[in-house]
C-alpha cells in the first residue's frame, strides 16, 4: 500500500468510483444468471460484466497506472480489444449450440430452422 498515497486525490476518487461501478455491474450481471428462468434469457446477463463492467475496471486501471507512473500505460487496451472481439463470439457460439440442441430434442419454444 506504499504507493497508493502518492496518487493525486482526483485520480484516486475517479479510480475508486470506476472500480465500484464496474464491480457492481459485474455483480448485477452474475446475479441475473441466477434470476432469469430460461437459458435464452440467462445468456443476456453476462454481457453486462463483459462490456461496461470490465470497461470501467480497465479505464480505472489505465488511469491509475498512467497517473502513478506519469506516462501513458496502454496495456489495458489489449484486454479491451480482446474482450470486444471474443465475448460476442463465445455468446453467439453458445446460443447457436443451445438452439441446435433444442431443435434436435424437439422443444417447441424455439423457432424452426428455415
Amino acid at each position: 500500500m506504499t504507493h497508493l498515497a502518492e496518487l493525486p486525490s482526483w485520480a484516486a476518487l475517479l479510480t475508486a468510483l470506476l472500480l465500484l461501478l464496474g464491480a457492481a455491474l459485474a455483480l448485477i450481471g452474475s446475479f441475473g444468471l441466477l434470476r432469469f428462468g430460461s437459458f435464452y434469457e440467462r445468456i443476456h446477463a453476462p454481457t453486462l460484466g463483459s462490456t461496461l463492467g470490465i470497461g470501467f475496471v480497465l479505464i480505472a486501471s489505465m488511469l491509475f497506472f498512467s497517473v502513478l507512473q506519469s506516462r501513458p500505460v496502454l496495456h489495458e487496451v489489449l484486454i479491451t480489444v480482446l474482450m470486444v472481439v471474443t465475448t460476442p463470439i463465445t455468446l453467439m457460439l453458445l446460443a447457436r449450440a443451445a438452439l441446435y440442441r433444442d431443435r434436435t430434442e424437439g422443444n417447441d419454444d424455439v423457432p424452426p430452422s428455415t
Binding site: 435464452y40 445468456i43 443476456h44 454481457t47 462490456t51 460476442p88 455468446l91 453467439m92 438452439l99
Partner: peptide
C-alpha cells in the same frame, strides 16, 4: 451481441 439485451443466434 455486445449490446446487452440482444443476441445474434
Amino acid at each position: 451481441t455486445a449490446t446487452p439485451g440482444t443476441i445474434w443466434v
